[in-house]
Amino acid sequence: MHIGILTMTFALPGCTSLKEKRQRMGGLHERFGRSPTVAVCESGERNSLTTSEWTFVVAGHSVPEVESLCSEIEDRLQRGVDGRVTEAIREIL
Rank of each mutant, 00 (worst) to 15 (best):
R22N: 00
P13R: 00
M25V: 05
T51C: 13
P64H: 07
E20P: 08
H61M: 05
E42D: 08
G33Y: 05
E45C: 11
G26K: 01
T16Y: 05
F56V: 09
E42S: 08
A59G: 14
S17Q: 02
A11T: 14
H29W: 04
S43Q: 03
S48F: 12
G33C: 03
V63M: 10
R34Y: 04
C15L: 02
G26M: 00
V57G: 13
R34L: 04
R22S: 01
L49N: 06
E67F: 07
S52R: 03
T37N: 11
A39S: 14
A11N: 09
R22A: 00
L18S: 06
G14L: 02
L49A: 08
G60E: 03
G14W: 08
T55W: 06
N47W: 13
C70V: 15
V63A: 08
C15K: 00
L18V: 07
E42Q: 11
V66Q: 11
N47I: 15
V38Q: 03
F32C: 05
V57Q: 07
S48Q: 13
G44N: 10
E65A: 14
G33H: 01
V63P: 11
S43I: 11
S68H: 15
T50Q: 14
G33Q: 03
F56Q: 04
S62F: 04
G33M: 02
P64S: 10
W54E: 01
E65W: 10
T16H: 10
R22H: 00
A59Q: 11
C41Y: 06
V38C: 06
H29D: 01
L69D: 10
G60M: 03
R46D: 07
C15H: 06
C70R: 06
F32P: 13
M25Q: 05
G26H: 01
Q23W: 00
A59I: 15
K19L: 00
L12H: 08
E20W: 01
C70M: 13
E20A: 02
V40K: 04
V63N: 08
E42C: 06
E45N: 12
L49I: 10
T55H: 09
T55S: 09
S43Y: 03
E45V: 13
L69S: 14
V40S: 04
V40L: 01
V58C: 09
A59P: 14
S35G: 09
E65G: 12
C41G: 13
R24E: 00
G60S: 09
T55I: 10
P64D: 07
W54K: 04
G26N: 01
S43C: 11
A59M: 13
G27F: 02
